[in-house]
Design a protein around this nucleic acid. Structure first.
Lengths: 350, 350
DNA sequence: TTGAAAGCGCTAACAA
DNA sequence: TTGTTAGCGCTTTCAA
């Protein structure tokens, strides 16, 4: 910047103005500055800017590290497919955030969580952005508590997790509503009563809420259910879904009329198992998922599921952050529950 | 930082050490500092750090703005589906870069290009990262030329575009090879000779290379072809593919034995048209795509295509950047051509 | 419309 | 093991 100033015969203040507020500089002066900048290959330092102006023009997103990158090369075809699908969840959020951020003139910094000492990735992100979103259960609560005292943070999915964090803005999805409505649909509209639910071993709040919705619908309809899912998968992958379906079909007693899965990937896996066994979906067994990933629309039969508006969640997150950053810093914490929608397709009999 | 130092009775240098190099500080001192930091809600400023240390620990990615965000709400169901698919291209790169960046301790800053004055998004990204990747045709050459004088830039996909930019590292995909091999496969292995090729109106270098591969294979096999694709679609979407298929089928003369599309999305659209018309794929007409997006595996019949290693491209981009940033700044420009792989599935008759 | 000067919050020698 | 100090490259009053 000093070089540009010297070369164009102005002060550094003027160079600064050319970039921050071009109209406040005489056109002729501006052109001289720009020309000098071009000749010198000058690019303003975002760091220095941020330091001086106390803002970065960048929003952040921290999400969990879904897959172990090193394990990836060993993965076979099916794992790869799962991977493609698993991607969608965080990617939709990234996409939503990127778009909305761009609309507001922000760039997006993304980082998957990585545990570490005082130098954790979250802290790094936090130090480089004006505000950021975190997917639930990505970052230790205490750390988030400290960081959120200094800048806006919005929590995505899941509950707020802790009283310590109840000052954070928060966006979740109506998981229970969705699963309840889907279950009701199977029971009342299709007359199915022997249902089996496949949940997850590692019970995230979202997955728990889905199961809760399932229970509520069953009980409301007088369908007998236990307090636990019929099965819990470890990873919610296609492979696990395929296996879960096999396990459920092999259990003694009447075959379930419907298999409900806590996510789409498992449901897709189940479809494969059923096809292999010569069972027709939905005539012999109905199958449902949850999430509304692209895959769900493409498998045959197309999957009945509950669509989560992940892209919208990303967009809303940015709106919330921007609002905090433009005067709303003292507003009461906002908690949004995004509505989900039941997507009726072939796999339930529709 | 000053507050933390004061509160814990040390100098700011020690506070700095606690974060940068914990082992160089006595454990007891370190704990005092960390405690004070927690009480005060201290988060190190990435900007100040970057400014002082001349590095940010962040890599960047600039990609084109595929969709108009404002047009999105008007989009119908089919457009949405296309959107899901279109996403994959840049998303795979983002994903690959994020993973690789993380491995090397970097975060990733992403921004879709946006035209603008001296304050363009690229410049913004450039000012906040240690190095970045750009998808071809995203950024004006002159701007890139200026920026790349100051920091490593790797160009993704497409040729280098210009002699001005021949000092940049560069990664592309073997488009011509892939399309040539795919075409050869149709001609020689399946004995098809009446082929129709659907390209794009806006001829990107990649798409052009694919058509070139197609021509080469045809000529090598003695199959007559013109110098132009049989049809050029405007946007390469499913909708356009569906329409292109209809157009080709309605042309007078013998029906083509195979429809080759310059990307998967169009091929998928074509599949819909063919199904609607009661034509069997591949018995009546073979169909092929290009890209290897997730969708291609899931449609029925599954699509024969050429898989582009986009994730790998993202990873390699990071490797290249990291290499430049760790001593390799003066090495000769690297140009990689990533191999593609022919994916034989049902839609070609395999 | 332009310039002068005081930081922004940190890192990195160098000293102690 | 810890402290002192001089910047890093910009923005931002305040003056001119």
């Amino acid at each position: 910047m000093y070089d540009v100033a010297e070369r164009s015969g102005v002060s550094i203040a003027t160079v600064s103005r050319v970039y921050r507020n071009p109209d406040s500089v005489r056109a002729q002066t501006r052109d001289r500055v720009l020309a000098a900048a071009r000749e010198l290959g000058y690019v303003p330092s975002g760091n220095a800017r941020g330091l001086a102006s106390r803002s970065t023009g960048v929003l952040g997103l921290c999400f969990p590290d879904y897959a172990d990158p090193d394990a990836e090369s060993e993965a076979g075809g099916s794992a790869e497919a799962d991977d493609d699908a698993a991607m969608l969840y965080s990617d939709q959020i990234i996409r939503g955030m990127e778009r909305a951020a761009r609309r507001h003139g922000y760039a997006l910094l993304i980082a998957a969580s990585l545990k570490g000492g005082p130098e954790s990735l979250v802290a790094k992100v936090a130090g480089r952005v004006d505000g950021f979103a975190v997917l639930a259960r990505t970052v230790p609560i205490e750390e988030l508590e400290v960081i959120s005292r200094r800048q806006p943070v919005v929590m995505l999915a899941g509950p707020r997790e802790s009283d310590q964090l109840d000052h954070l803005d928060h966006i979740e999805v109506a998981n229970a509503d969705g699963q309840r409505e889907l279950t009701r649909h199977l029971i009342e509209d299709h007359g199915l009563r022997r249902l089996a639910y496949v949940g997850s071993a590692e019970e995230s709040p979202d997955v728990a809420a889905r199961f809760r919705g399932y229970l509520e619908a069953c009980r409301a309809a007088g369908v007998a259910v236990g307090d636990e899912p019929d099965l819990r998968a470890a990873l919610m992958t296609q492979a696990e879904g395929a296996q879960a379906a096999a396990t459920l079909l092999d259990r003694p007693g009447d075959r379930p009329e419907a298999l409900l899965f806590a996510n789409d990937q498992m449901a897709v896996g189940a479809l494969h198992t059923l096809e292999r066994r010569g069972l027709r979906v939905p005539q012999d067994v109905a199958v449902t998922g949850f999430d509304g990933i692209a895959l769900s629309r493409l498998v045959r039969p197309a999957l009945t599921t509950v669509r989560q508006p992940m892209r919208r969640m990303g967009e809303e997150a940015v709106e919330l952050l921007v609002r905090r950053l433009t005067g709303g810093q003292n507003a009461d914490p906002v908690s949004m529950m995004l509505p989900v929608s039941l997507v009726r397709r072939a796999s339930c009999g529709c």
